[in-house]
């Protein structure tokens, strides 16, 4: 009956009427998708090669460690590199505990409810605040209200706000990768929830957690817009290039690239910018490699699985 009312096709070969054109469309679409994905890789290769070619002649020991120069050629970026790491360090000091604890709360403790929704919504909102807007918030609070002027600490606190959501997300994903059976096993042995988190869950999540933290650190290292008006666009000329006082102004390498381009009087500004861009790129690559290697090592060491 079914067949009787549907016109019976008499296809004898394994082909149908429009199969050919459809196959061609499919081939073209597939090729286009491959092409689109390849452009990503080609683009990255282009960027890396270009930055190396432009920047490598600027790199020298003196450039990497020396003071920037106000008016003459030959200035270095020593304090800037130090400041980038120093502000990253300060930022991690604030971000890590808060974000990991909050991540543990959301992932392990909080049942569905108003408080959890509020925290998650806040994190999402915080994550979409543009960094320049966060920079102005830092300016309003730390510079205008607290009268700190431009400081490493103010910059680090601003970056903390900017990166809390990403760190929390990283923590949540790392915790989610821990099999449910670990929790049950630990709780089954009479451990409290907190003991379970500390002794069973966090150690097994340490690999992916480290990978995520290092990747986010890479982004903190290169942040610019949020720092220009909080940590400042100049370095303090103290006794050494390494100024640990968190209340001193602290231009980072990324900010230096910006300010060199914008207002430098030195004749070799382009050289310095090219060199700074290359150092920033190399740091991104280093952070990526370290994230992978360290994450894998820690996973193997602490959980015994490859």
């Amino acid at each position: 009956m079914a067949r009787a009312i549907l016109a019976t096709p008499t296809v004898e070969s394994l082909r149908s009427n429009n199969a050919r054109s459809r196959r061609i469309v499919d081939k073209i679409a597939t090729a286009a998708l491959w092409g689109a994905a390849s452009t990503i890789v080609l683009m990255l290769i282009l960027f890396v090669v270009y930055l190396f070619v432009q920047g490598y002649s600027a790199i020298s020991w003196h450039f990497l460690t020396g003071y920037p120069s106000a008016a003459n050629a030959g200035g270095g970026v020593g304090p800037e590199i130090f400041n980038s790491f120093y502000i990253l360090f300060l930022t991690l000091c604030f971000t890590l505990p808060i974000a990991v604890l909050a991540g543990v709360f959301i992932q392990e403790y909080a049942g569905p409810g108003r408080f959890r929704d509020m925290v998650e919504f806040s994190a999402e909102s915080l994550a979409t605040v543009p960094s320049i807007v966060m920079g102005l918030f830092g300016l309003i609070v730390f510079v205008q209200l607290f009268h700190w002027h431009f400081t490493a600490l103010g910059g680090a606190l601003t970056l903390t706000l900017l990166n809390l959501p990403a760190m929390m997300r990283v923590t949540q994903q790392a915790l989610a990768s821990v099999p449910q059976t670990y929790r049950e096993a630990s709780m089954g042995l009479g451990a409290t929830k907190w003991q379970t988190v500390l002794r069973a869950i966090l150690p097994s999540a340490i690999g992916p957690l480290t990978t995520g933290v290092v990747l986010v650190s890479g982004r903190i290292f290169g942040e610019t817009a949020a720092l220009i008006f909080t940590a400042g666009a100049s370095v303090s000329y103290g006794a050494s290039a390494y100024d640990f006082n968190p209340f001193h102004t602290a231009e980072t390498l990324a900010v230096h690239l910006y300010s060199t381009h914008r207002e430098a009087l030195v004749p070799d500004a382009d050289q310095i910018a090219n060199g700074s861009a290359l150092v920033l790129l190399v740091m991104v690559l280093v952070f990526n490699v370290v994230a992978r290697v360290l994450g894998r090592q820690l996973t193997v060491r602490l959980t015994g699985k490859a």
């Binding site: 960027f47 610019t224 990324a254 861009a277 920033l280 991104v284 690559l285």
Partner: peptide, 10 residues
């Protein structure tokens, strides 16, 4: 991931 990590100033 590297493209994500490249700073916007770069």
């Amino acid at each position: 991931e590297v493209l994500v990590g490249i700073p916007s100033i770069v």
